[in-house]
Design a protein around this nucleic acid. Structure first.
Lengths: 216, 216
DNA sequence: CCACGCCCGAACCGTACGGTACGGTTCCCA
DNA sequence: TGGGAACCGTACCGTACGGTTCGGGCGTGG
């Protein structure tokens, strides 16, 4: 076993994996294969052919197929970034707009084909491999977003715009109002309805209802 | 190809598949294997050994492995049933209790290991096989429940207990308030927190918030 | 100019698993 | 009692894919 094999499980979640440019190109190809054909479409031979690299290099870089999958997840997670919260002090309207923009961005990420493909992959593997992929997706994806959301909501509370006891709880409600069962239905392969594709208005109504529950 | 191969895709969704008792036993074994070890644990040879039947019978009954998986989904869907709505006329408190009971039952089903295993399976396969499993799960599972929920909510509206424009929309909100992102987190392999395991209180708070939004 | 390292492409190996074939047993029904 | 249907257990086949090995090309540094 090469010592340089990719092992995200033991690395710090905030440590950047720092893939080489060549590796990033290969990982992007892997991502494309995954989005197009699901997990079974991502074979080592197929990726080597598509990305014009050798299987030997794949195994040198990523250790084994599981390492490759983990690298794909980590790579894509590193690509996603949310709009950083603008100035901390803001009036009620712009704050609410910030919240709506956050929700819209969240919907945009979760409903993207890339995110769906990676979620399908991780969920499909979640009862094998001691579940590395699921943990990875949760830590690098959901938990990052959740912590970002909590600070946003806490800021709203400090400014007297929102009222709640538990920021995590409030975020979960916001999430539920926005996502409902659409995420799971998309994961199962159902196409989004036209109304569900209008992310902006979806976000608006979710924030409307959120303010009915938690507005000060 | 045997003409009797199991093909749910062309059968009416409300037509009972009617598996023979022997087949039901085998399907129950298959379900157990799936819950314990995920999809890769369900091999034709393994199932034949576990269920003490021959691979030849499996192929005669279900056509091929995909037919077997579809049969497992259909079988389990036929096992789940919700508490049928009690008397149509009810005062406000018992109606609200009905809604809470419905939500609690919904949580109980969705968070069960069996449901999670089948959802993982269907999601993992959702970009192959022209997506039979996902369709099956949606039609026999989610859509059934959703239609049941809509009639329940419509009844509440007729009795002047709830107020909304679109029953489907209202149900989606109720779903989102109750499930939030717990379902996906469980699908990804994260363990439920103690609070999340208290289905009754989870359902109560969800219904509380639902009434804040849609109570008459 | 040579040596070394990196990498590509292709051939190769082992295995796991889907699917099939077949002999033997049990049970039903004429 | 004979024949057939259903079924079990097992052996078998083909293939796809993860993983390894090897030869050759290309750039770099001494």
């Amino acid at each position: 076993m090469p010592a340089a094999a990719f092992d995200i499980a033991t690395s710090r979640p905030d440590a950047a994996p720092e893939f080489s440019p060549r590796q990033q190109v290969v990982l992007q190809h892997a991502l494309t294969l995954l989005v197009e054909g699901g997990e079974k479409a991502l074979t080592t031979a197929g990726l080597a052919r598509t990305a014009s690299c050798s299987k030997e290099s794949l195994y040198k870089w990523f250790g084994d197929r599981d390492g490759l999958l983990a690298a794909v997840v980590a790579f894509q997670a590193s690509q996603v970034q949310f709009p950083s919260e603008a100035g901390a002090t803001a009036d009620a309207e712009t704050y609410r707009a910030h919240v709506a923009a956050f929700v819209e961005a969240l919907l945009g990420v979760l409903f993207s084909e890339t995110s769906l493909a990676l979620n399908r992959l991780s969920i499909g593997q979640s009862n094998t491999n001691s579940n590395r992929l699921g943990q990875l997706l949760l830590v690098r994806g959901k938990h990052m977003i959740s912590s970002r959301a909590r600070t946003m909501l806490e800021s709203g509370r400090r400014h007297g715009l929102l009222k709640f006891d538990n920021a995590e709880d409030a975020y979960q409600v916001l999430y539920g109002l926005a996502i409902r069962d659409v995420h799971v239905r998309l994961l199962l392969g159902e196409a989004a309805s036209p109304a569900e594709q209008d992310l902006k208005s979806q976000a608006e109504t979710a924030v409307d209802r959120f303010y009915q529950l938690f507005g000060a």
